[in-house]
Design a protein around this nucleic acid. Structure first.
Lengths: 232, 232
DNA sequence: GGAATTTCTTGATCTGAATCAAGCTGCCGG
DNA sequence: CCGGCAGCTTGATTCAGATCAAGAAATTCC
C-alpha cells in the first residue's frame, strides 16, 4: 500500500499505540482502493474477509429484511467498520455502500486476528474500540425505544451542533432521506418533523440548519450523556 | 467466595480457557451475594465497579429517559452483564434489577482490567464476548427497525421454541408486561398481538404457548440468522 | 381462606407516523 | 437553455399502536 496512507491509519486509536513491527505486518497485507459512489463494498450475510478503514469519502451501513431497508449508520473518515465480524470471523450483519467517491483501506481479517494474539497493546485497543461500539449501539437503541421521532430529530440536531462546536448554523452531513431512515422514520415525516421544530427555533434551508435558541431546543430535546454522548 | 460457585463461573466462555493462577487472582476479590427480588443492583449512570455474573435467578436490564422506561434485556444464569462498562471504566448505560431471588457474583472491574493486560487467553475471550454482545444488539436493532410488533413477537416465539429444541409447547420465561417492553410495545398491544397470531396456529394459555403449525408461523415470521440467531 | 394488589385482557378512542398522491425544487446532461 | 430526473415537500388518507377505561384473572399478603 502507498506509504502516505499509513500515517492516517496509524493515527487511529486502534493502531496508534501498537508495536511498529506488528503494524508493519498488518500493513503488508493491506491494500487501499478508490471506489466510485454507490458501490456495494460488502453485502449482508457475506463472510468477513477484511477490516475496512474509510480514509476519505463516506460509507453507509444498511440492513434489509423482507424487502424493507434501514440505515444503521454512516461511517466517515478516519474510522473502521465491521470490526466485530472481523474478530468473530462471522458473517456481516450489515451491508456497506459508498455514498460518494471514497478511499478505503482493506486489512485482511486473518491478519487482524493473528496480530491480536501477539500484541497486547493492540488487543487492548481492540477491546476498547469494541466496547465503545457496543455502547454506541446501546445508546442508539435507547434513543429508538424511549423517544418519539421528533425528540430523536431534536437530539440529532443538537449532536450535530456539538460537532461544529456549538455554531448556530451548520450543514446536515447526509441526505435527508438517509437521515430519515437512520432516525427510523420516512422522508415525508422528517420533512414534517423539521417543521415541527420551528417553534423551538429551528430554521431549515435545504441542508442548512440554524438553531436560533439553543436553550429552547435543549429544553425540548432533553439530551443526556447516557444516550447522546457518543464519545463516552 | 465459596468454592462451589467457582466451577460455574470457570465454565463460562469468558473464563474457561484462562490461566488457573489468573483465574484465582480474579476470584480472590470476587464475592457472591444473594439478593431478594426487585433489588436494584446497579443504576443508570453509576460508575462500573464490578463485573456481574448471574449464578441463579434472573436480572432485568432497563433504561429510562424523561420518565419513560424500557426493558433492554433479561439476563439468566450463567452469564455476565455490563462487560463493556467494566472494560471502558465508563458509567452504566442501563440499570439492573433482580426479577427473582438471585445469586450474583461480583468481580471487581479493576481486577478484570488488570488480568486482561497479563492474560492473552482471557483477553481473547473478552474480545470474543464483546463482539458477540455487539452483534446481538445490532440484531436487536434490526429487529426493532425492520419489523412490526406482530412480526417481532412471532420471531420471539420461534426463538423461544428453538430454546426448548422445537417443542410445540413451552412457557414464556418472563412476565408479559416485561416482554411487551422488551419487544417495544405496550402490555395491551402484546395481548392483542398474541391473539393476532392465532391465525398462524399460536395458542396462548397464561404463560403457556403452543405453536400448532410451526411451518405456518415460520412463513409469517420469516426469521433469518442475521437477526434471530443470537449465537452467531 | 379471603381481601387486596397486581397483572392481564378487552373494548373504545385517539394519535403519531406510514402510505398514497401530487406538486415543487434543484441539479445534471445534452 | 431546457427537458428529465431524483430528492424534497405538502396535503389527504389510512393504519399501527398508544392511551384510556374497566373488568377478569392471578398473586400476594394478612
Amino acid at each position: 500500500m502507498p506509504e502516505s496512507y499509513r500515517a492516517y491509519i496509524r493515527a487511529l486509536h486502534l493502531f496508534v499505540d501498537m508495536d511498529a513491527d506488528h503494524f508493519e505486518a498488518l500493513m503488508r497485507g493491506t491494500y487501499v482502493q478508490n471506489f466510485p459512489p454507490q458501490v456495494e463494498l460488502i453485502s449482508e450475510g457475506e463472510p468477513s474477509d477484511f477490516l475496512h478503514v474509510v480514509l476519505s469519502g463516506s460509507v453507509e451501513l444498511t440492513s434489509t429484511w423482507n424487502g424493507r431497508e434501514t440505515t444503521m449508520a454512516t461511517v466517515r473518515p478516519i474510522s473502521t467498520f465491521i470490526l466485530a465480524a472481523t474478530i468473530k470471523d462471522a458473517p456481516y450483519l450489515m451491508a456497506a455502500k459508498t455514498l460518494e467517491k471514497s478511499r478505503i483501506a482493506l486489512i485482511p481479517s486473518s491478519d487482524v486476528r493473528a496480530v491480536f494474539d501477539t500484541d497486547h497493546i493492540f488487543a487492548r485497543a481492540i477491546v476498547t474500540e469494541l466496547a465503545q461500539c457496543y455502547r454506541s449501539v446501546i445508546k442508539s437503541q435507547k434513543d429508538l425505544k424511549l423517544r418519539t421521532s421528533l425528540e430523536r430529530l431534536a437530539n440529532y440536531l443538537l449532536r450535530q451542533q456539538d460537532r461544529v462546536n456549538g455554531a448556530a448554523e451548520f450543514e446536515l452531513q447526509i441526505e435527508k432521506r438517509r437521515l430519515a431512515s437512520f432516525l427510523g422514520m420516512t422522508p415525508e415525516n422528517l420533512s414534517r418533523a423539521l417543521k415541527g421544530l420551528q417553534p423551538y427555533g429551528v430554521e431549515v434551508n435545504g441542508n442548512q440548519i440554524r438553531i436560533n435558541d439553543q436553550a429552547d431546543l435543549l429544553q425540548f430535546a432533553k439530551p443526556t450523556p447516557l444516550i447522546d454522548d457518543y464519545a463516552s
